[in-house]
Deep mutational scan, measured.
Amino acid sequence: MPEGSASLQLAVGDRVVYPNQGVCRVSAIDVKEVAGQKLTFVTMRREEDGAVVMVPEGKVLAIGVRKVASAE
């Protein structure tokens, strides 16, 4: 991610809310080559049905992904 860009610090195992998809758990953060460029992807699995969603790390905030609020 370019320096100075806002990002959401995620780790494998974090629970997040993905708008219009529901609650997901981060299952992987991997670098993949797409069209000759190396990009970091956040892979999330929906808790409702296990569907897998992959989002480029740089788009996580723009999409509206946020961490699940704690009970505290």
Rank of each mutant, 00 (worst) to 15 (best):
P19K: 06
A11T: 09
D30L: 13
E72W: 07
V26I: 14
T40P: 03
S27L: 15
V17T: 07
G64K: 06
P2A: 12
V52T: 09
V17K: 04
D14G: 00
V55Q: 04
V26D: 00
G58S: 14
A62T: 07
V52P: 03
K67F: 08
F41L: 09
S27N: 05
V42A: 00
N20Y: 07
A62I: 11
K59F: 14
A11M: 12
P56F: 09
S5F: 11
V65R: 04
Y18R: 02
G4K: 12
V31S: 06
M44R: 00
V23F: 14
S70A: 11
I63D: 15
V52A: 06
L61V: 15
I29Q: 00
M44C: 05
D30C: 06
L61K: 14
G36D: 03
G58V: 10
G58F: 14
D14N: 02
I63G: 09
A11E: 10
L39T: 09
A71W: 08
E47G: 01
Q37G: 08
L10D: 00
N20T: 10
Q9W: 07
E33Q: 07
G22C: 03
V65P: 03
D49E: 02
E48T: 12
I29M: 03
A28N: 08
V34W: 07
A69I: 12
D14S: 03
M1C: 02
E47C: 03
I29A: 00
V65W: 03
V16E: 01
Q37I: 15
Y18P: 01
E72N: 12
S70Q: 12
S27A: 10
E47Q: 03
K32T: 07
P56N: 07
A35L: 09
V42Q: 00
E57S: 15
V12S: 02
S7T: 13
Q37C: 01
R45L: 15
E57A: 15
T40V: 14
G50W: 05
G4T: 12
D30Q: 11
V60W: 14
A71L: 11
C24F: 15
R25A: 05
A69D: 11
E72Y: 07
V26E: 00
V60K: 03
G36E: 03
V31D: 04
E48C: 06
V68W: 04
Q37L: 10
N20K: 09
Q37F: 06
G13F: 01
A6F: 10
K59E: 15
V68G: 06
V23K: 03
Q21F: 15
R45H: 14
V12T: 03
F41H: 02
V34N: 04
R15Y: 15
Y18M: 14
V65T: 05
K32Q: 09
A35V: 04
A6D: 10
F41I: 14
A35H: 13
E57F: 15
V12N: 01
V34R: 04
K59C: 15
R15G: 01
T43P: 00
E72Q: 10
G13I: 01
N20P: 12
Y18W: 12
V55A: 07
S7A: 12
M1G: 13
A69T: 13
G64A: 08
V31Q: 08
Q9I: 10
P56S: 11
G58Y: 15
V68A: 07
K32W: 14
Q9T: 11
G22D: 04
G13R: 01
V23A: 05
D49L: 02
A11G: 05
A62R: 07
G4D: 10
E57K: 08
G22N: 03
D49N: 06
E3C: 04
G22L: 04
V53K: 03
V53I: 15
V55I: 12
V42L: 07
T40I: 13
P19D: 07
S7D: 10
R25G: 02
V23G: 02
N20V: 05
A71T: 11
G22E: 04
P2I: 12
G64Q: 07
V23P: 05
L8M: 11
M44N: 00
P19W: 06
F41K: 02
V17I: 14
V12R: 01
V60I: 15
K38H: 07
F41T: 06
K38S: 07
M1Y: 13
V31G: 01
V65C: 06
E48G: 08
L10I: 08
A6N: 12
Q37D: 06
A62M: 08
K32E: 05
V65D: 04
V17R: 06
P56L: 12
T40E: 02
V55Y: 06
S27C: 01
P56E: 15
A35S: 09
R46H: 06
M54C: 04
L8I: 10
I29V: 06
G22Q: 05
R25S: 07
S27H: 08
A28V: 04
E3M: 10
R25P: 01
M54S: 10
E48N: 08
P2D: 11
A69H: 10
E57C: 08
R25C: 00
Q21W: 15
E48K: 11
G50A: 03
Q21V: 15
D14W: 01
V60R: 04
R45T: 15
V52L: 13
G22H: 04
V12A: 02
P19N: 08
A69L: 08
S5Y: 10
